[in-house]
Design a protein around this nucleic acid. Structure first.
Lengths: 229, 229
DNA sequence: AATTGTGAACCTCTTCACAGCT
DNA sequence: AGCTGTGAAGAGGTTCACAATT
């Protein structure tokens, strides 16, 4: 009887995006349970704290292994460590910011990124007026040096916080420099070659979705729960 | 033959979240097409610009009416106006910010919100040190006055940019004050009563999803396209 | 008695494919 | 000929329900 399945190097069925995002939620739920000195936790409780069903939680975890004990639940510390392995949070990631405007600056100061091991090592901007500015101990540097600097710092994740019109060009350059994953805050759709991962943080879309909900008040689906991403 | 179906006050099948978010993308695509003086646009082109399929675009629109002309495509200005009606963007919305930290401040300055008619009218914070600070012409005020101020300004949308632990309490107060929709930047799951809409802008989840993609390099699904929300 | 892990049922969203206009 | 609008098929994600285990 396998005591515990190894979580890393998953190669079974393709994991949905939704599952990955929920794992990230479970991870934080477990962090707080551990802080409260809880040793075990049930799928039921993880679900309740995230506005989901217990079956959903168990199914998500089951893609990666059998981490619980029937009749007892999950060991909080173990499950936390396992999810950390699955998501690749057992290590740190060097991150590069492009766009030293309001949003970009706020992101560099955003404590949660550091706490979870995402470390800004490089800040780039095309505007000469910004070069040399210090943001959280980092100098803003010329975006044109992107290739050289990204390679030198071995950066794999780029955060793009430039105005829409420039975003695609910035992304193309980052990809050329060897960046493999991009968190895009520009309110435009960007296209990338196969093998490059993009996540969009499009605040305009989200607030417009709220506008829709308020407008089409026909909305008869108001279930007391935890709402969309 | 109905020349054009009225887009507003939709009450057919429930519209998926994904559809609403895509409409928001089409809306911006059309804005830029119009700026480029294009008069008509095909579902094929809207799709290409957003990394989607043409069928998806047509299906999304079909939930709200028949806006195109067979053989010709869509009139850019008409479709833009129709989507604006559907999403409720033909008007302005007063918005309240809670949390005058880095992120909150950046959001108030975020031009796209204003451009799309989302106007910050109120900035609240619990920290007395922040009271009286000016952010883009608005005074930061005591969060305890939330009830009175939200009602006075007739605000329906709240943007929450406070640290995780305080978020649920803030949301409860906002709901009590009459807020109907919340854009939540705190990296925690918040629960709301039926009839209140929440969208989460959880940057930690998004960057952790990138970490997962980079970690489970088994990722054999790299289709050249426009990636997840 | 409690709670997990999971195949199967169910439901929702996307894509196909083609009739119907222009 | 070109392109939309849409029913039907297909794919994917969620929930059910129960055997397995502690």
């Amino acid at each position: 009887m396998p005591r515990q399945t190894s979580p890393t190097h998953h190669d079974g069925p393709k994991i949905s995006d939704a599952t990955v995002k929920r794992l990230s939620k479970y991870y934080r739920t477990l962090q707080s349970s551990i802080a409260q000195e809880k040793t075990t936790i049930s799928s039921e409780e993880i679900a309740r704290l995230n506005g989901l069903t217990a079956a959903q939680v168990r199914k998500d975890l089951s893609f990666f292994g059998a981490f619980g004990r029937r009749g007892l639940g999950y060991n909080a510390v173990d499950l936390h460590r396992n999810i950390s392995q699955i998501l690749g949070l057992h290590r740190t990631w060097n991150v590069c910011l492009v766009g030293a405007g309001n949003i970009g600056t706020a992101l560099v100061h955003f404590r949660q990124f550091q706490e979870q091991g995402f470390l800004f090592k490089l800040i780039l901007d095309s505007d000469p007026a910004k070069w040399g500015m210090k943001i959280a101990d980092l100098d803003v540097q010329d975006f044109e040096q992107c290739d050289e600097l990204v390679k030198r710092e071995k950066i794999k994740i780029g955060v793009v916080a430039v105005p829409g019109p420039g975003a695609q060009r910035v992304v193309d350059r980052l990809v050329q420099a060897g960046i493999k994953a991009i968190l895009n805050f520009a309110p435009v759709t960007i296209l990338v070659p196969p093998g490059i991962y993009v996540r969009n943080e499009n605040m305009v879309i989200e607030i417009e979705a709220l506008s829709y909900a308020l407008t089409s008040k026909s909305g008869h689906k108001p279930r007391s729960s935890a709402a969309a991403e």
